[in-house]
Each structure stands twice: as C-alpha cells, then as structure tokens.
Design a protein around this nucleic acid. Structure first.
Lengths: 110, 110
DNA sequence: GCTTGACGCAACCGTTCAGTTGCAATACAT
DNA sequence: ATGTATTGCAACTGAACGGTTGCGTCAAGC
C-alpha cells in the first residue's frame, strides 16, 4: 500500500466524527458559526480543556481552522473540504456494492 | 434532544468506519461479495477472532447481515442503508455550514 | 466413531482515549 | 500595578479498544 492520502484523511475524519462531543462541537460550529473554546465550554457539559483537545484533533483532521481574534481569543471555523472527501469515500463503498449487486443480477438472469 | 435514532446510528457507523481493519473488511465485502470470517482471516493480517469481533460490531451497527451457509459457515453481506444515512449526516453538516456562509454573505452585502 | 473445518466464548495484555485538575503565561482594562 | 479573562501545557485516572491465546462446540465426511 502506498501512502494513500485519501485513506489517511478518511481515517482522521471518521475518527473525528466518531465522538459525540466532537459531533456536538461540529454541529454548534455549523449552525452557530465560528466560536472559541471557552464559549463552547459554556454550552457543552465538559471542561474547556477537554474541548481544547477536541479542537486540536479536529484541526489536525483538517475539519477546523483557527483564526486569532480580539484579545486573546481564538475563533475556530469549519472547513468543508474533508467532509466532502468522506462523502466520496462512502459513495465509493456504496457504488462498489451496487455494481457487485447488478453484476450478480445480470449473471443470474443470463 | 431526546434519544435521536439517526444520531445513534451515525455514532455506530462512524465508529465502525474509524478502524482501518474494519474499512478493509468493508472494502473486501464491497468488491468481493459476501464472505465468512475465516476467509477474511486469510486475506487480512489479523486473527480470525479479531475479525469476528469486527464482524459483530459491524453487524450491530447495521452495516452487515449474517446469513447461514453450507456446513457451519456464516456468510456476511453488506447493508447499504446505514451508509446512506451517514452520507445524509455529512450532507446536513455541509448544508448548515453553507447556509450560514451565504447568510453571512448576504448580510455583508446588505 | 473419529477427524476435520468453522464458529463462539472468555480471559488477558498493551495502548489509546476522553476527561479532569492544577498551574503558568499573556493580553487588556482599571 | 493589580485584576480579569483566555489560552496552553503537563500529569493523572479510568475506561474502552484492538488484538492474541486457549478452549469448547457443533456440523459434515471418511
């Protein structure tokens, strides 16, 4: 296996999406717009530090981008590109499965 | 939010997709068609028991369905429904994000 | 009846992970 | 200068996870 970049990204994206707290963060970001760690800590039932860890993980996965704001705040905003890549991954899976099914069908009706 | 069933399924599907071995199993199933645990153990670098664990997890996630076959074999085949649900989840995320962006844009050009 | 192939169950090991607590550093306001 | 708010770093804990080994079980063929 050569270092497949798409696979690596899929890995990170799916692990990122696997955690409930992380999904909550993403949902908040998607509906409420860019926010900071402490603001999220007010809205979620976990500590700021826990949220900070999730934010770095999400940033490493390419899902988030941090931007410095006023005072010492850092605002995180969503990055749609990796999400689309994950969608393509799922589409490829479904596609392979579908073509296998139709091939079987035509073989049976042969 | 009450126990959202779609969220629960998304949880299981994304955790299932997060593991490389599990993705390998799904890819094998998608391209090669239904197989058994021992057959997969020949093709993957892990033990049959490890594969069996993954298979039960994938079955619990609704991604696989076991069907008894000849002798004592059990053949697992893919189930496309949860995959489509996961795709919808990602689409919803991207959609919310997109609408937020366009709303911001129209607000700025207002 | 005995062997062979396939599966299930249970215990165990090492690693990773989510979350917490505690503390240092830095920017701005008064 | 002192206080307040926000972030970053480090150590720790408890639980979950991936994987292995070992053993028991059950169906079919000789």
């Amino acid at each position: 296996m050569q270092p497949d970049p798409a696979e690596a990204i899929a890995e990170q994206v799916f692990t990122a999406l696997a955690d409930p707290s992380r999904r909550a963060i993403l949902a908040d970001l998607a509906t409420g717009g860019p926010t900071t760690a402490t603001d999220l800590a007010d809205r979620l039932p976990i500590t700021r530090q826990a949220i900070a860890k999730h934010l770095t993980l999400l940033t490493d996965a390419g899902l988030l981008t941090p931007t410095p704001a006023e005072r010492r705040r850092i605002r995180y905003h969503l990055n749609p590109a990796p999400i689309q890549l994950a969608q393509q991954f799922l589409a490829a899976l479904a596609h392979d499965w579908d073509t296998r099914l139709t091939a079987l069908k035509t073989h049976l009706t042969d």
